[in-house]
């Protein structure tokens, strides 16, 4: 009975969605007058000298969203920690050593993954990628090690330090913009020439900080969830 009702409802929703989105032409240039898109592309190229315009939007034009975004991840990690918190961990972790192939492969792959992650978030403003993507790649690297070795420990202290310092750099960069009389998160460093590593003022620095933060946070999240004591056995 519930299935039927839901199907009818979804049919009506489908009708309205299709009706709206069929009128939005795919791939057709909808904005003629002066609009946000051209402004961003032009300003990102000429004013900020950042080649990857998506990064310039994410970090500079709509930097406040990213600040909120980073807080969302930070709070999600905190909320996750508080939800899964248990005072006396009883029962041993059920993590087991993966097979030798996985262990040796993990050992081999761990360094390149971290290197790739670092590359991605350092070149955020030049090539596609950036803080979030780089951070996640690093997290997957640590995940690989956690899955391969059951006794692989990620020290909680270091994670908190990295996470907090990265967040502080992001927020303080924004506040220094404010202190220097400009507005919050405004670029106050020289923007260099486009397409070389040190271009775009504070944008790469912020994105690197975001990279570290996201990397540390997601590793923390995965570590808390993996080390969630196996409840079934005890």
């Amino acid at each position: 009975m519930k299935k039927v009702i839901v199907l009818i409802l979804l049919a009506v929703v489908a009708y309205y969605l299709v009706d709206v989105f069929s009128q939005i032409k795919f791939g057709e240039n909808r904005f003629q007058g002066e609009n946000v898109r051209d402004f961003y592309l032009d300003k990102s190229k000429n004013d900020l000298h950042v080649s990857n315009s998506v990064t310039s939007i994410v970090v500079n034009f709509r930097g406040f969203d990213t600040l909120g975004e980073v807080t969302v991840l930070f709070l999600a990690a905190t909320a996750l920690g508080s939800v899964l918190y248990r005072r006396k961990a009883h029962g041993e972790a059920v993590l087991f050593n993966a097979s030798t192939i996985v262990r040796s492969g993990a050992h081999l792959l761990f360094a390149p993954i971290l290197l790739l992650g670092a590359y991605v978030f350092i070149h955020g403003h030049l090539s596609p990628g950036g803080g979030f993507q780089g951070g996640t790649i690093i997290a997957t690297g640590f995940l690989l090690m956690l899955l391969a070795y059951h006794d692989y420990k990620v020290s909680h202290g270091v994670l908190t330090w990295v996470e907090s310092l990265a967040g502080l750099t992001f927020a303080s960069l924004g506040l220094t913009g404010l202190i220097l009389g400009k507005t919050f998160l405004e670029n106050f460093l020289p923007i260099g020439t486009i397409n070389d590593l040190f271009s775009g003022g504070i944008i790469p620095i912020i994105y690197i900080a975001v990279g570290f933060k996201v990397g540390a946070e997601l590793t923390g999240v995965l570590y808390t969830m993996l080390n969630e004591k196996e409840y079934k056995k005890s």
Partner: peptide
């Protein structure tokens, strides 16, 4: 490309592992 990289990293890798855990 940016979004493709993010989706690959978060969507494929992390969401799956979190579900599996």
């Amino acid at each position: 490309p940016d979004v493709a990289l993010t989706e690959a990293a978060i969507g494929v890798a992390l969401t799956t592992i979190v579900f599996v855990i």
